[in-house]
């Protein structure tokens, strides 16, 4: 079963890389970019076949390792 975890900085946490991307887009002529946040995507291939169990395990993985919940939010997607 494939799954995907999106990790993004929490609102209110300054994202210097997002800011740099925003400025670069502006200098390329893309006007009206009002905000950019950079995050990461982690794709997982799990032996688990029960989506509910997979989601619970993924949540545990996020809390223990994949995200730093002091500064990051995560979103889990079980792709089946």
């Amino acid at each position: 079963m494939k799954a995907r975890v999106d990790i993004t900085l929490k609102n209110g946490v300054l994202d210097p890389q997002g800011k740099a991307i925003q400025h670069a887009l502006g200098s390329l002529g893309f006007d009206g970019v009002e905000g950019v946040r950079q995050g990461k995507v982690i794709e997982l291939d799990l032996a688990e076949t029960d989506p509910a169990k997979a989601e619970a395990t993924l949540k545990d993985m996020c809390e223990k390792l994949l995200a730093n919940t002091v500064i990051e939010d995560y979103r889990i997607e079980v792709l089946g």
Binding site: V13, L14, P16, Q17, A20, N68, V70, I71
Partner: peptide, 16 residues
Amino acid sequence: IESGLLPGALMRNAGL
């Protein structure tokens, strides 16, 4: 910090 012994977070330098 990652092990929880100290609080807060260390992020990318402001000047990148």
